[in-house]
Amino acid sequence: MLDKNGIAKRIAKEVQNGYYVNLGIGIPTLVANFVREDIEVEFQSENGVLGMGPFPFEGKEDADIINAGKQTITTLPGASFFDSATSFSMIRGKHVDLTILGAMEVSENGDIANWKIPDKMVKGMGGAMDLVASAENIIVAMMHTNRAGASKLLRRCSLPLTGVGCVKKIVTNLAVIEVTESGFKLLERAPGVSVEDIKDATEGHLIIDRAIPEMEL
Protein backbone atom coordinates (compact mmCIF):
# COMPACT_ATOMS: atom_id res chain seq x y z
CA MET A 1 0.00 0.00 0.00
CA LEU A 2 1.23 3.49 -0.81
CA ASP A 3 1.34 6.55 1.40
CA LYS A 4 0.64 10.04 0.03
CA ASN A 5 4.22 10.46 -1.13
CA GLY A 6 4.01 7.09 -2.86
CA ILE A 7 0.91 8.17 -4.78
CA ALA A 8 2.70 11.38 -5.79
CA LYS A 9 5.77 9.41 -6.85
CA ARG A 10 3.69 7.12 -9.09
CA ILE A 11 1.86 10.06 -10.67
CA ALA A 12 5.16 11.83 -11.33
CA LYS A 13 5.92 9.06 -13.84
CA GLU A 14 3.00 10.32 -15.95
CA VAL A 15 4.62 13.72 -16.33
CA GLN A 16 6.40 13.97 -19.67
CA ASN A 17 9.01 16.24 -21.16
CA GLY A 18 7.53 19.55 -22.37
CA TYR A 19 4.39 19.35 -20.24
CA TYR A 20 2.67 22.32 -18.66
CA VAL A 21 1.12 20.93 -15.48
CA ASN A 22 -1.48 22.24 -13.02
CA LEU A 23 -1.27 20.70 -9.56
CA GLY A 24 -4.16 20.82 -7.12
CA ILE A 25 -3.90 21.18 -3.36
CA GLY A 26 -2.91 18.18 -1.18
CA ILE A 27 -1.32 15.04 -2.66
CA PRO A 28 -1.01 16.64 -6.16
CA THR A 29 1.29 19.34 -4.78
CA LEU A 30 3.72 16.60 -3.71
CA VAL A 31 4.08 15.41 -7.33
CA ALA A 32 6.48 18.29 -8.07
CA ASN A 33 8.99 16.70 -5.66
CA PHE A 34 9.24 13.51 -7.72
CA VAL A 35 9.35 14.66 -11.34
CA ARG A 36 12.47 13.41 -13.15
CA GLU A 37 15.21 15.98 -13.26
CA ASP A 38 16.19 15.25 -16.85
CA ILE A 39 12.92 16.56 -18.32
CA GLU A 40 11.60 20.11 -18.75
CA VAL A 41 8.26 20.74 -17.08
CA GLU A 42 6.53 23.98 -16.08
CA PHE A 43 4.04 24.16 -13.24
CA GLN A 44 1.06 26.49 -13.59
CA SER A 45 -0.86 27.85 -10.63
CA GLU A 46 -4.27 29.19 -11.57
CA ASN A 47 -3.96 32.36 -9.51
CA GLY A 48 -1.56 33.56 -12.17
CA VAL A 49 1.92 32.06 -12.45
CA LEU A 50 3.66 29.72 -14.85
CA GLY A 51 7.11 28.41 -13.95
CA MET A 52 6.52 27.97 -10.26
CA GLY A 53 9.54 27.03 -8.15
CA PRO A 54 9.96 25.69 -4.61
CA PHE A 55 9.03 27.48 -1.39
CA PRO A 56 11.29 30.47 -0.62
CA PHE A 57 14.03 30.40 2.01
CA GLU A 58 13.05 31.99 5.29
CA GLY A 59 13.13 35.77 5.03
CA LYS A 60 12.55 35.69 1.26
CA GLU A 61 8.75 35.28 1.42
CA ASP A 62 6.85 37.77 -0.74
CA ALA A 63 3.13 38.46 -0.17
CA ASP A 64 2.85 39.22 -3.89
CA ILE A 65 4.15 35.80 -4.99
CA ILE A 66 1.88 32.96 -3.91
CA ASN A 67 0.31 29.81 -5.36
CA ALA A 68 -3.35 28.82 -5.55
CA GLY A 69 -3.09 27.39 -2.04
CA LYS A 70 -2.11 30.92 -0.88
CA GLN A 71 1.35 29.59 0.04
CA THR A 72 4.44 31.71 -0.53
CA ILE A 73 6.45 30.38 -3.49
CA THR A 74 9.34 31.27 -5.78
CA THR A 75 9.59 31.39 -9.55
CA LEU A 76 12.13 29.73 -11.84
CA PRO A 77 13.97 31.35 -14.78
CA GLY A 78 11.49 31.70 -17.65
CA ALA A 79 8.51 32.15 -15.34
CA SER A 80 5.64 34.53 -16.08
CA PHE A 81 2.78 36.20 -14.21
CA PHE A 82 -0.64 36.93 -15.69
CA ASP A 83 -4.20 37.89 -14.81
CA SER A 84 -6.97 35.42 -13.90
CA ALA A 85 -8.71 35.55 -17.30
CA THR A 86 -5.43 34.71 -19.03
CA SER A 87 -4.79 31.95 -16.51
CA PHE A 88 -8.11 30.28 -17.25
CA SER A 89 -7.59 30.80 -20.98
CA MET A 90 -4.58 28.50 -20.55
CA ILE A 91 -6.82 26.00 -18.78
CA ARG A 92 -10.06 26.24 -20.78
CA GLY A 93 -8.14 26.64 -24.03
CA LYS A 94 -6.41 23.27 -23.40
CA HIS A 95 -2.92 24.73 -23.31
CA VAL A 96 -2.22 23.02 -20.00
CA ASP A 97 -1.21 19.44 -20.77
CA LEU A 98 -1.92 17.71 -17.49
CA THR A 99 -4.13 18.44 -14.51
CA ILE A 100 -3.63 16.54 -11.27
CA LEU A 101 -6.20 17.00 -8.55
CA GLY A 102 -7.70 15.37 -5.49
CA ALA A 103 -11.23 14.03 -5.18
CA MET A 104 -13.79 12.93 -2.61
CA GLU A 105 -15.53 10.64 -5.12
CA VAL A 106 -15.07 9.48 -8.71
CA SER A 107 -17.68 7.49 -10.63
CA GLU A 108 -17.07 4.73 -13.16
CA ASN A 109 -18.06 7.09 -16.01
CA GLY A 110 -15.46 9.66 -14.96
CA ASP A 111 -17.62 12.09 -12.97
CA ILE A 112 -15.78 13.77 -10.12
CA ALA A 113 -16.98 15.30 -6.85
CA ASN A 114 -14.45 17.30 -4.85
CA TRP A 115 -15.88 20.66 -3.81
CA LYS A 116 -18.84 20.37 -1.51
CA ILE A 117 -20.34 18.27 1.24
CA PRO A 118 -23.87 19.67 1.70
CA ASP A 119 -24.34 21.25 5.16
CA LYS A 120 -20.78 20.35 6.16
CA MET A 121 -18.17 21.75 3.86
CA VAL A 122 -19.26 24.58 1.60
CA LYS A 123 -16.07 26.40 0.76
CA GLY A 124 -16.42 26.69 -2.97
CA MET A 125 -14.98 25.12 -6.08
CA GLY A 126 -12.18 27.61 -6.77
CA GLY A 127 -10.76 26.69 -10.16
CA ALA A 128 -11.65 22.99 -10.00
CA MET A 129 -14.73 23.18 -12.26
CA ASP A 130 -12.83 25.08 -14.95
CA LEU A 131 -9.96 22.61 -14.74
CA VAL A 132 -12.05 19.45 -15.04
CA ALA A 133 -14.36 20.86 -17.72
CA SER A 134 -11.56 21.42 -20.17
CA ALA A 135 -8.43 19.41 -19.45
CA GLU A 136 -7.78 16.57 -21.88
CA ASN A 137 -5.65 14.74 -19.40
CA ILE A 138 -6.89 14.62 -15.82
CA ILE A 139 -5.35 12.39 -13.18
CA VAL A 140 -7.03 12.08 -9.81
CA ALA A 141 -4.78 11.52 -6.79
CA MET A 142 -6.63 10.19 -3.77
CA MET A 143 -6.95 7.47 -1.16
CA HIS A 144 -9.01 4.53 -2.42
CA THR A 145 -11.41 4.71 0.55
CA ASN A 146 -12.57 7.50 2.84
CA ARG A 147 -11.88 7.76 6.58
CA ALA A 148 -14.93 5.62 7.33
CA GLY A 149 -13.52 2.91 5.03
CA ALA A 150 -16.10 3.42 2.26
CA SER A 151 -15.02 3.26 -1.37
CA LYS A 152 -14.40 6.53 -3.20
CA LEU A 153 -14.59 4.78 -6.60
CA LEU A 154 -18.32 4.54 -7.11
CA ARG A 155 -20.97 3.57 -9.62
CA ARG A 156 -22.42 7.08 -9.25
CA CYS A 157 -21.13 9.98 -7.16
CA SER A 158 -23.34 10.83 -4.17
CA LEU A 159 -21.86 14.31 -3.56
CA PRO A 160 -22.48 17.40 -5.73
CA LEU A 161 -20.44 17.05 -8.92
CA THR A 162 -17.48 19.16 -9.96
CA GLY A 163 -17.53 17.85 -13.53
CA VAL A 164 -19.03 15.10 -15.66
CA GLY A 165 -17.24 12.35 -17.59
CA CYS A 166 -13.85 13.99 -17.31
CA VAL A 167 -11.48 11.84 -15.21
CA LYS A 168 -9.13 9.70 -17.30
CA LYS A 169 -6.91 8.11 -14.71
CA ILE A 170 -6.92 7.55 -10.95
CA VAL A 171 -3.92 6.79 -8.78
CA THR A 172 -4.74 5.68 -5.24
CA ASN A 173 -2.89 4.10 -2.34
CA LEU A 174 -3.97 0.73 -3.78
CA ALA A 175 -4.02 0.97 -7.56
CA VAL A 176 -3.67 2.72 -10.89
CA ILE A 177 -7.00 2.73 -12.70
CA GLU A 178 -8.02 3.97 -16.12
CA VAL A 179 -11.55 5.28 -16.57
CA THR A 180 -12.97 3.65 -19.71
CA GLU A 181 -16.39 3.66 -21.38
CA SER A 182 -17.17 0.37 -19.65
CA GLY A 183 -15.88 1.27 -16.18
CA PHE A 184 -12.77 1.32 -13.98
CA LYS A 185 -10.03 -0.63 -15.74
CA LEU A 186 -7.41 -1.89 -13.30
CA LEU A 187 -3.91 -1.27 -14.69
CA GLU A 188 -1.53 -1.69 -11.75
CA ARG A 189 -1.62 -2.61 -8.09
CA ALA A 190 0.41 -1.01 -5.32
CA PRO A 191 3.24 -2.99 -3.69
CA GLY A 192 1.84 -5.57 -1.30
CA VAL A 193 -1.74 -5.10 -2.50
CA SER A 194 -3.69 -7.94 -4.12
CA VAL A 195 -6.31 -7.72 -6.84
CA GLU A 196 -8.81 -8.97 -4.25
CA ASP A 197 -7.95 -6.05 -1.94
CA ILE A 198 -8.66 -3.62 -4.80
CA LYS A 199 -11.94 -5.36 -5.70
CA ASP A 200 -13.07 -5.13 -2.07
CA ALA A 201 -12.29 -1.42 -1.93
CA THR A 202 -13.96 -0.52 -5.24
CA GLU A 203 -17.73 -0.08 -5.36
CA GLY A 204 -17.93 0.82 -9.07
CA HIS A 205 -17.51 -1.67 -11.90
CA LEU A 206 -13.89 -2.88 -11.92
CA ILE A 207 -12.55 -4.40 -15.13
CA ILE A 208 -9.78 -6.95 -14.72
CA ASP A 209 -8.96 -8.31 -18.15
CA ARG A 210 -5.40 -9.48 -17.68
CA ALA A 211 -2.73 -10.23 -15.07
CA ILE A 212 -2.24 -7.04 -13.06
CA PRO A 213 1.39 -6.02 -12.57
CA GLU A 214 2.72 -4.37 -9.45
CA MET A 215 3.53 -0.66 -9.84
CA GLU A 216 7.09 0.37 -10.50
CA LEU A 217 8.00 3.41 -8.47
Binding site: E46, S84, M129, A133
Partner: peptide, 23 residues
Protein backbone atom coordinates in the same frame (compact mmCIF):
# COMPACT_ATOMS: atom_id res chain seq x y z
CA UNK B 1 -16.07 28.67 -10.83
CA UNK B 2 -12.96 30.83 -10.61
CA UNK B 3 -12.49 31.05 -14.37
CA UNK B 4 -16.15 31.97 -14.80
CA UNK B 5 -15.74 34.74 -12.23
CA UNK B 6 -12.75 36.12 -14.15
CA UNK B 7 -14.54 35.91 -17.49
CA UNK B 8 -17.76 37.55 -16.21
CA UNK B 9 -15.58 40.48 -15.09
CA UNK B 10 -13.75 40.55 -18.39
CA UNK B 11 -17.02 40.35 -20.33
CA UNK B 12 -18.23 43.44 -18.47
CA UNK B 13 -14.95 45.18 -19.30
CA UNK B 14 -15.01 44.11 -22.94
CA UNK B 15 -18.65 44.76 -23.81
CA UNK B 16 -19.87 41.18 -24.04
CA UNK B 17 -23.31 40.61 -22.47
CA UNK B 18 -22.50 36.97 -21.73
CA UNK B 19 -20.11 34.16 -22.51
CA UNK B 20 -20.34 30.39 -22.94
CA UNK B 21 -18.09 28.29 -20.73
CA UNK B 22 -17.76 24.53 -20.29
CA UNK B 23 -17.09 25.00 -16.55
Amino acid sequence: PQGTLAERCRAAQAGFPAIYTPA
